[in-house]
Design a protein around this nucleic acid. Sequence first.
DNA 1: CTGTTAGCGCCTTCAG
DNA 2: CTGAAGGCGCTAACAG
Lengths: 336, 336
Amino acid sequence: MPVPTIRDVAKRAGVAPITVSRVINRSGNVSPDTSARVEKAIEELGYVPNSLARSLRLKRSQTLALVVTDISNPFWTTVVRGVEDTAQDAGFSVILCNTDESESKQEQYLDVLVQKQVDGILLVPATSDGRIVDWIHKQRTPVVILDRAIEDVPVDMVRCDSQDGAYQLVQHLLALGHRQIGVLTGSRRVSTASERVAGYIQAMEEAEIQVHEGWIRYGTFSQDSGYEMAQRILEVDPRPTALLAGNNFIAVGAMRALRGAGLDVPGDMSVVSFDDLTSHLLIEPFLTVADQPAYEMGQQAAALLLARLSGKAPEEHQEILLPIQITARSSSGPPL
Amino acid sequence: MPVPTIRDVAKRAGVAPITVSRVINRSGNVSPDTSARVEKAIEELGYVPNSLARSLRLKRSQTLALVVTDISNPFWTTVVRGVEDTAQDAGFSVILCNTDESESKQEQYLDVLVQKQVDGILLVPATSDGRIVDWIHKQRTPVVILDRAIEDVPVDMVRCDSQDGAYQLVQHLLALGHRQIGVLTGSRRVSTASERVAGYIQAMEEAEIQVHEGWIRYGTFSQDSGYEMAQRILEVDPRPTALLAGNNFIAVGAMRALRGAGLDVPGDMSVVSFDDLTSHLLIEPFLTVADQPAYEMGQQAAALLLARLSGKAPEEHQEILLPIQITARSSSGPPL
DNA sequence: CTGTTAGCGCCTTCAG
DNA sequence: CTGAAGGCGCTAACAG
């Protein structure tokens, strides 16, 4: 016996398919009596509506897609939760995709998502190249860009004020007395990486400190890269007395490198970082961090996308910038 | 201008829709000449196939669903990667869902997934109640159960040998000289939680140690629960000299509690645990653990499901049990 | 190699 | 309050 369709239910209840549809979707008025007969038939047959057919007809799938760059990072899983909770409340499902910072994987996923007729896409772009957004727009799928800026394209965006976060972290280090400060960040092609450097430079310039070029290191947002960048920066003369890590993974990698070099944190080297979320898994949080509101970012991005879908968002593209607060802990102290 | 359909492409290329379909799917033979004209039309119109319509017609969506219980836990994100990589290679997309160990959320998700006509479901069951599997089977959707056993229902299953893992961990503690050993685990309704207790009891009985009832604590697989269970167990007389944590989150919570009580690990109390994955984010891994092959579990489960879908799996239900190895580190030492 | 016909399961429109 | 007809976009089956 094949899977029952709306027609099977209709036949069994002695009504037309459309009536069953009305009962399922509570659209139009159906007499309590008929309604009950339909419900009974649904129950008896174990009928489950086919939402593929429904979506095809309605031209909407009640589904959002969320494309992130690294699902292993607790920072992103927190964003995921913010998105999911918000979508769920609005009756939307979420398809989650992971690009591993790869542009080609990103392209592949976006293609599939558009084909699957998702109603909207939340994208953490692998790079700041705006063409991908143009392409999605051409497919008439609404997009909200998350966490990272995109160049030269008008699009809804929700992100954190990375520059200010970095600025605050460096100010904190300066206040402790540091003058030689290094920064380890992600790829140049990722806006958050360069903005964090910009905030660093801003603070250093205000303090009238000459920044040594070896103090600024670009890599990737990974532990391995953090490890390597830290090793390199230790060889720079003059050697920094404090490091600003572009994210939590870089911080962990860097601290491993410092440990390998026999350096104590914060005794021999202060370390401050973005993204507090490693503390979920640490016995004793000790990293001084700029703590991005990950959950809120997910929430707001999803809310904005949903507003777009229902035509409730203002015509012009929104750019929401969330503030960052820093939390001082024991990984930063005065220089030797 | 509305989104172009296969008919628009056909018209522009001067062919029938089916010919366009054949070009897109490389099904049937099409002359290179026609094919080129079609490709051109597709390009010019920016045509993207509607896979909703395709799935409706073909009765398959090339989509799997993965339902996990806690996406914040790196253990699960690793499983996710194993599943995704395997699915991707076979041309399948994955819809990821997070139940937070809640049966009602689980039910809700499964309903949506069946409605969306996913081709198969990979489920980490919130509880060992077998009825949910019966329900999915009734919907004719293949399922593979991950990580946790389900009672009394014939179904494909891929999981790790929790009992043996716990047995090994306790043996390790016994070898160090511990006789009073406590165990902090998850909910009684979750098979892995109880299996880990079973392995503990097995090892203790073999060593002819009388297990004090206060030494076995059931809670949930969360940090808060670990914290609370650890606080309680410290009041038991005789107090354990070593603790076995049912997962990484419980271990972290427990260690925080020990720290709050002024106890040193492993000086005053040894701690061993399941799931090594916190180490990704730790500067210095120090927990003695039973390290479950998370990525492989995801891979194998996805592979099994895909084999089912293509009819390549053996008729009878498979139960794959992956071995667990323990890694001894500095969190465990001899008792005082 | 190419096209015609028909229908996947559902819901909008218009009639009763 | 209920139903009949038609079509969303796609592809199998069967011509030619």
